[in-house]
Design a protein around this nucleic acid. Structure first.
Lengths: 224, 224
DNA sequence: CAGGAGCGTTAAGAACCCATCAAGATTGGC
DNA sequence: GCCAATCTTGATGGGTTCTTAACGCTCCTG
């Protein structure tokens, strides 16, 4: 889950933001001044920092600078100051975005999504492990018993669809349409050929598959 | 150099932006409507797009969506609309930042720097070593057996992409799109010519490569 | 119990992809 | 404007992958 660190000296804002963010599936940590913000960011991994510039102890730009000394975590700045100089300073110190108060929560959330989209292309779901083999979706690499397994393009696209939907039944139509295109939706034979190929390459006993299960009349199911 | 694509239907703004950006060391391409913007972005690699939402032909959000179908280039949106909905829509469509007109040029430039900072290389991981050669990404320098190896610009951009993604399979589309631009996504021949060149210069036995591996039908993989 | 439908397996030719070479076209520096 | 370096383009032969069809098997159904 994405962990957001909210830094603001106004308890109302902190509380309101925390509630909203939690409501949208983020986990939230908070800090009321610069020092504790820096400390909190060092304590545990943070996906993004929402930082008010008007802190009681340290100047906001300084917080950014000191954070940037060791961290590349995205920083979204909140500020009551509309001045162009403040924005430029904060952004050049290392902030990623800058919103002036008062701001719409919708906008804040949208900017948060935009920032997180850049830093986390595929959170966690890039490596799928099973009892007998491992699929790395980002590297497009399959490992079985320490050995790399080569896949042809068609094999890979089928495998990718399967492992992205574990436990789920994939109909033949779905596979055929996504891999070969809608015109091939009836060519169930292709599937048999390639499913056999996948099993031969990945299953311990291709004859009695444990990961690529046939659901007769329906389609196939991948079990990790 | 960073190449900026400026998209706006107001010639004055385009001209002003172009002059300012060039003055700050950017190279600038321009487009006056959505179609030519998409076309221009496909012609050659673009580092960042500055996009006005109020275009005469296509809705701005649509431009973002269509650009995102094949490109991850950062998009900075300009808009006269202050409404929260417009911002959320544009950001969720794939924009990276959103400024409302009128805006300060200082702020625009600062936000541009902030966006480009994200796409820039990580300092520290700039030297990659393999069994037979060394690549210094910062110095753009390659060493093999104590000797410097010269690279042409095209060779270097391919090598850079490969080396920045070790172990990872890079599809031909990815390489062609990033090096030559999306319009060349089908010219797989170029890749073969240049991959052969890279192997001749860097591999111990160009005939049986150990670092630049071909995955037939899929793409290429770099192994350190 | 026979027939049919769906599935797994196999194999061969067609289609496509890759490495390599070399010759024209283009570009950039002087 | 010229020269050298670089990039584009086309052709060739060798390899890989895809498509297609045939056959045997099991399970369900009439």
């Amino acid at each position: 889950m994405n962990n957001v660190l909210v830094v603001d000296d106004d308890p109302h804002i902190v509380r309101a933001l925390a509630i909203t963010l939690k409501g949208h599936g983020y986990s939230v940590a908070t800090a009321m001044d610069g020092e504790s913000a820096l400390h909190a960011a060092a304590q545990r991994p943070v996906s993004v920092v929402i930082l008010d510039l008007g802190l009681p102890d340290i100047d906001g730009t300084t917080v950014i600078t000191r954070l940037r000394e060791w961290s590349t975590v995205p920083i979204l700045v909140l500020s009551a100051r509309h001045g162009s100089n403040d924005k430029v300073e904060a952004l050049d110190a290392g902030a990623d975005d800058y919103i002036t108060k008062p701001f719409g929560l919708d906008e804040l959330l949208a900017r948060l999504r935009a920032i997180l989209r850049r830093t986390e292309p595929d959170p966690g779901t890039t490596v799928i492990e099973t009892g007998s083999f491992t699929v790395d979706l980002a590297k497009k690499q399959i490992t079985k018993a320490g050995q790399d397994v080569r896949m042809t393009p068609t094999e890979w696209s089928i495998l990718e669809i399967m492992v992205r939907n574990p436990e789920k039944l994939i109909t033949q139509q779905q596979l055929l349409t996504e891999v070969w295109g809608p015109a091939y939706a009836k060519e169930a034979n292709y599937l048999r050929v390639y499913m056999a190929q996948l099993r031969r390459k990945l299953e311990a006993e291709p004859g009695t598959p444990r990961h690529f299960i046939t659901e007769p009349g329906m389609g196939y199911r991948f079990l990790p």
